[in-house]
Amino acid sequence: MAKNEVEVVKGIDLARYMGRWYEIASFPSRDQPKNGINTRATYTLRDDGTVNVLNETWSDGKRGFIQGTAYKADTNSDEAKLKVKFYVPPFLPLIPVTGDYWVLYLDEDYHHALIGQPSKKNLWILCRENQLDEEIYNQLVEKAKGEGYDVSKLKKTTHTNPPPETEDAPADKGIWWLRSIFGK
């Protein structure tokens, strides 16, 4: 029997969590380009304690990206429950859309992580490198399964080596990001 309350990491060091994370696998969104590759997120801590979020993916040689802000849902809690806010559309910041970003597992080296949402509609496996050891991957999948996620929906993300440079890429507006993040 799957439990309702998802177990979340406690005492996360946000400063250590910053930097680039590669998406190893996720629940694909129907709005995400089917051929999206090299998907990654870069987190940067701001002076006020919030986090700048940059999500990128490449599709047909174009870089799709969206930026947002992450912050702790409850500043008094030591649980790694974050809210992520993006503006729709990204190039016209009018309507903020907020989603949950819960860190369900993080190894002590801050090398790989399992991110989910309490609704269980979204799940991500992230790693500091764009490849993750198969055994560790399977352990993260088992952990997600134990938390009640339908892991049959997980799809591995394709990466090229070396990863693309952001500066080289022609931009595309990347509206699909929003829909994928909020499971719309």
Score class of each variant (00 low, 15 high):
His159Tyr: 08
Tyr71Arg: 03
Lys83Arg: 10
Ala169Gln: 15
Lys155Met: 12
Asn130Tyr: 13
Asp13Lys: 09
Gly99Lys: 09
Ile125Val: 05
Gln32Gly: 00
Val8Ser: 01
Ala171Pro: 14
Asp150Ala: 02
Asn35Val: 05
Asp48Ile: 00
Glu108His: 05
Tyr105Ala: 11
Thr42Lys: 11
Ala15Tyr: 04
Thr75Arg: 15
Asp150Glu: 07
Lys3Met: 12
Lys156Pro: 00
Lys81Thr: 06
Asp60Ala: 06
Ala15Pro: 07
Asp172Ala: 15
Arg30Gln: 12
Ile24Lys: 06
Ala25Met: 08
Lys143Asn: 11
His159Asn: 11
Pro33Trp: 01
Tyr101Trp: 12
Lys72Asp: 05
Thr158Ile: 14
Gly61Trp: 03
Gly64Phe: 01
Asp31Gln: 13
Thr160Ala: 10
Lys10Thr: 13
Pro28Tyr: 06
Phe27Glu: 00
Lys120Asp: 03
Ile37His: 12
Ala73Trp: 00
Asp168His: 11
Thr166Gln: 13
Thr42Leu: 06
Ala2Pro: 13
Lys121Thr: 02
Asp60Leu: 10
Thr75Ala: 15
Asn130Asp: 14
Lys83Cys: 00
Asp133Cys: 08
Leu132Ile: 05
Ser180Ile: 04
Ala80Gln: 08
Thr44Glu: 10
Asp133His: 09
Ala113Trp: 01
Glu23Lys: 05
Asn35Ala: 11
Phe27Gln: 05
Arg16Glu: 14
Lys143Ser: 15
Glu167Cys: 13
Met1Arg: 13
Tyr101Leu: 06
Lys153Cys: 02
Thr160Arg: 14
Glu167Gln: 15
Leu154His: 02
Asn76Gln: 11
Lys85Asn: 06
Pro28Val: 10
Ala41Thr: 13
Ile66Trp: 03
Tyr137Lys: 07
Ala144Gly: 04
Asp133Phe: 01
Gln117Phe: 10
Lys153Phe: 00
Gln32Cys: 02
Phe86Ile: 08
Val141Arg: 01
Thr75Leu: 12
Asp13Ser: 09
Gly61Pro: 06
Val53Pro: 03
Gly183Asn: 10
Val8Pro: 04
Asp74Val: 00
Asn38Met: 13
Gln139Trp: 09
Thr158Ser: 11
Met18Ala: 05
Gly68Pro: 03
Pro164Tyr: 11
Gly11Ile: 09
Phe65Arg: 02
Tyr101His: 04
Gln131Asn: 12
Gly36Lys: 11
His111Met: 08
Trp58Met: 06
Gly148Leu: 07
Gln139Glu: 15
Asn161Val: 14
Gln117Ser: 14
Ala15Ser: 12
Thr69Met: 06
Asp60Trp: 04
Ile175Ser: 05
Gly146Thr: 14
Glu129His: 13
Lys85Leu: 02
His111Trp: 11
Asn38Phe: 09
Leu114Gly: 00
Val151Gln: 00
Ile115Pro: 06
Val9Thr: 06
Lys143Met: 15
Lys143His: 15
Leu45Met: 10
Ala144Ser: 15
Arg40Thr: 04
